[in-house]
Design a protein around this nucleic acid. Structure first.
Lengths: 224, 224
DNA sequence: CGAATATAATAGTATTACTATCATATTTGA
DNA sequence: TCAAATATGATAGTAATACTATTATATTCG
């Protein structure tokens, strides 16, 4: 993985930033500390003023990279899904059997994150936590339709379509491949959240993983 | 339904308000217009100042009923789940067959909302839209654990447990009844949202309902 | 009818979410 | 290498938000 992704830049929609944060040290510090700060105080608590202080600079420097914190959230979540997508594509590429392929994909989506040293400024473990807690907020807005039209969610949607294709290959007669694909991703995040905060309404825990639940689930649904 | 619920007050956790909005005309107007206003401008756009104007009063009056808009959101979503729960309990009560019972429950959770004249000040159609768009935001916060301990989410969790019980009755060997129950509710909201905003990643539309997807889904998962 | 309670109006505060301006440092490219 | 361009840093300012506090005015209730 490390070797494969070593020099790959995760391509995020370029209207999500004013200046590419990957293009400078300061930009990378913004990304780095936004993840750390959101983990500490939550997305609602984040302000560009605090983020400015965290990077040893001030508000105005952050505003030169991102219009507002909503765009920053879109940037971070897009990056995350892009990163997951690469792993999924590379790690399932050589698998011939469709069922095995989908299982692997589910494992990749659900597995505990390990840090990827290719991106030194990004703490993937915390970024995953952030996606679990904040991703929904990136689209549950009044502006979702415009922003969707702009293409801000295309990486996420593409990931859903990759799962959909696998599902269709396994069972072409199954009537809801797209919904099942989007449900897999949504459920992987939701059950993870429940495990951390509403233990009484999930069976997922340290012994039973979200992947176990989803693998069982998908196997039964797609059985002919 | 109307007759049954006619005089029933949906019981919402009493720490969610400072003064019970059901106890006065002004309180009911706050509830009524908060739903309308959130539909218009979204939860992020809502302020107590705007809400005050909407009810023909001002900010300070609203603050006498609710501490802040987060508590108002918790109140509204609790009320919604309580209302759904009553329907579910009454409408499935007399059904003997467990599978039939769960199917009915899913239909109730997913069905297009019709206004319930028992609660004149609540527009259930818009409230349902609000729950789809805003419910996640009520728990995706830094305070979720404390608030959960306080019992602010108990109606929602109780609803999940009602589904869980049905699932267990149908198939006692199924290993993930709680996760399946929480997934059903989450998916019903999520697929509805996708249908409205991300059509390309769902199969649900005017012809195929979210209930169709979930019914098919649950039947396969619980088949012995 | 007077006391208690609910509502309305106004004012004030700290913070947020920016925009604008200017100074200074750093890079780069002729 | 030096001037120009660009990036960063610091400060100031604004409208709006999310409240709290106070006082005045209705309303209702014993």
């Amino acid at each position: 993985m490390k070797q494969l992704l070593g020099n790959l830049k995760i391509a995020v929609h370029d209207k999500l930033y004013l200046k590419d944060p990957e293009s400078s040290l300061l930009g990378k510090k913004i990304i780095e500390h936004s993840i750390l700060l959101i983990d500490e105080i939550g997305f609602e608590g984040l302000t560009f003023k605090k983020l400015g202080t965290a990077i040893g600079s001030n508000e105005s420097s952050v505003y030169r990279y991102f219009e507002n914190k909503h765009k920053l959230l879109l940037y971070l979540t897009s990056w995350y899904w892009g990163w997951i997508e690469y792993q999924l594509v590379f790690e399932t590429h050589s698998i011939g059997d469709a069922s095995e392929k989908l299982d692997k994909a589910i494992e990749i989506i659900c597995r505990p994150i390990v840090e990827d040293s290719s991106y030194a400024h990004i703490n993937e473990v915390l970024l995953n936590k952030m996606v679990i807690n904040e991703f929904s907020k990136s689209y549950l807005t009044k502006e979702v339709d415009e922003e969707n039209k702009e293409g801000y969610f295309s990486i996420y949607k593409r990931l859903v379509h990759r799962l959909e294709e696998m599902i269709q290959t396994i069972n072409a007669e199954y009537k809801y491949p797209t919904s099942l694909a989007s449900t897999i991703i949504e459920t992987s995040l939701h059950q993870q959240f429940l495990k951390d905060h509403f233990k009484s309404i999930t069976n997922c825990n340290n012994k039973i993983s979200t992947a176990d639940f989803l693998l069982n689930f998908v196997a039964k649904i797609l059985k002919k």
